[in-house]
Design a protein around this nucleic acid. Structure first.
Lengths: 205, 205, 205, 205
DNA sequence: ACCTAAGCGAGACGGTACGTCTCGTCTTGCG
DNA sequence: CGCAAGACGAGACGTACCGTCTCGCTTAGGT
């Protein structure tokens, strides 16, 4: 999702970008997304304002509005840029697969602070219909990915055929979300395993 | 406190409240909470500003700030005033209990628009640590209530003794939250039942 | 300047005054005027608010409003309590009389900070018609006093009979006021003498 | 800039000013000063608030605060915009010159209501050190202008060489100020002439 | 000795204005 | 034509006082 090959991060001191003619300057776009991401990580959603992003990116506000119709759109793209480092590996045991998925998701949200960004997105979605739609869509997509864990287990007969993978994926995502949103990302392995076990037991043949 | 949708909405024309001496005027408090609630219901979180609440309640801004340190505190109290009309009844079947719980929660959030208020609170909590703490505490309390569904089923032997009721309650709450936050409160009975069944099967003896 | 026989200043700790029955409590009145005066002296007109006066005097706001209809009235009474220690002595020379008058007025305004209070009154009068009227009346009275300097000199033939003493008093007051209002109370003797000399020469027989 | 009383008062209906790029929009500045001036004239100092100015000028409050650090600064600029139409003409007689000066000053203050603005400024200066300084400086400058009346009379021998023109100018200004501040701008010619005569006689050779 | 009337401190009330913040829009002038 | 810059109208934020109101308490003076 991120193709620029250069600098990254570097946000200060240089003599300011200029127009590169009558087309979008990818450096500016990059700097803006970079700045937005940093702000979200450092100060959370509360510190995330277009004004602040523009200042940190050494960009003009209109440049932001030229490419992203509003705050929400920028927020979304920032989130989507995040490389999911979630563990979807197939261990042969659906319970272990789910546990690894959940653990790795918590870990990613915690350690890369992408959780902070996702929280912001959820918050924004409660105010803004566009964000809500985007979030719903995004969540659907992710759920699709998670669903595969169930589907492959179903294929090998570990999971009953009448189970709706979509529903299981929803339960998993829900459990992750509520922990993120109520600041319980440091949940113990024991508890996570217990939660996953309930679901796994509930769907095993 | 307000289930009817028609009654004492009247906010105009009266000769304006006055101080009732060196103590809090409950009428003002009531009017403010009422106004806040209405605003959240009518215009959602985006239309919820102290300024707007004050105007609608015919109250001065300082009167609001005198009793609620900030927007968040007011939001919280508005939500807590909502008397949950959630169905915790004991049908003898944990699965049916859970289904009824979930259905009634979805119904309450949808039909009384308290869902709108709760969404706002979740959003606010992502910006404000105090709100986050309050929300976490509130969620914990509610989870306690939900846990009882599991505990009583455990007592009568319907559910395995090694199941952690807290975890089950968490899964249920999570499923509700994610539907609220992604605007899926109109989920079909079939799907809800499927989700609940997964959990119920996962914990039955 | 202060004739109360007790405490003075002491504004803290005592168990607070109470009503002394169905009549005005002179201690309260005194405490309020005292507090107002101190505030004006210490922080000037900007720090003079009924709220602040009430707090410093350990009085309720209604007690103030019971006896003084508004801020202006209180300000006025505070000023009038100031006993002018202005030198109206008759040296036999109108020029010397005027000089002494001016010097002593500047001195009083400067050293007792009553100048600060008078400045406040002038400021208030520019916003409030009642204060303006009161100020005009007060100024008229004082001018009357000053006029006597001229009249007695006229009687002994030092000043021409066709001179209007009122006008001379006005010129003197004006000179004093403009120095107060533009923070020039530290004017040199030389300059003051020169100003007075102009007037004296202008009216001598 | 505004001597007519009828023209471009129009403040309503137009489609509202916009930014003209990264530089001050003179139209806005003009509209703000205009609005401030009108408010002072119409309602006096008491009706002069940044909020009211913003509303009348159809400007945002921050636009005002961007260019004037506070109320006082705006007040000052409003006053300084007023082109003095005071009569400094040389009739050959210092007494007549002074009389004309005084009459025209009273007239201007009365008829153009710039007196109202100046009164406000004097009031403000009693609360705000910056305003005081500005007022003192302004008064000094004006006094310089007035001093010339004396200096030219001194040159032609009408006034004694040992007279300090500064002091005379001060006396004249003082007389004007006190009349403005105590609402005596309708003073009779007779009285004004008498006052001026005292000074003139006091300085003639 | 009781009762009423009014003053007292306290502090909440509906308001208005303050000065600050961010939103999303607009233009300029350089490249 | 894109860009950095930053002004613009709008309007919410949380604070300070305004002048009014009521409470619950005092005490004085009339009965």
């Amino acid at each position: 999702m991120r193709f620029s090959m250069t600098d990254e991060i570097a946000t200060e001191d240089e003599p300011a970008r200029r127009s590169i003619g009558a087309k979008r300057n990818p450096d500016s776009a990059e700097a803006i997304l970079e700045a937005a991401e940093e702000l979200l990580r450092d100060k959370g959603y509360a510190g995330f304002s277009i004004e602040a992003v523009a200042k940190r990116a050494r960009a003009g506000k209109p440049t932001i509005y030229r490419w992203w119709p509003n705050k929400t759109a920028l927020l979304l793209e920032v989130y989507q840029r995040q490389k999911g480092q979630v563990d979807y590996s197939d261990t042969g045991s659906i319970e272990e697969d789910m546990f690894r998925f959940m653990k790795s998701l918590f870990h990613q949200w915690r350690e890369t602070q992408t959780g902070e960004i996702f929280r912001s997105l959820v918050a924004e979605a409660q105010q803004d219909d566009a964000a809500l739609k985007a979030l719903a869509h995004y969540a659907g997509t992710r759920r699709g990915r998670t669903r595969q864990i169930v589907e492959r287990a179903q294929k090998r007969g570990e999971v009953r055929a009448d189970v709706m993978p979509e529903v299981v994926a929803d339960l998993l995502a829900a459990y992750a979300w509520i922990h993120l949103l109520t600041d319980r990302l440091y949940e113990s392995d024991e508890t996570i395993r217990a939660a996953v076990a309930v679901i796994a037991n509930g769907i095993k043949s």
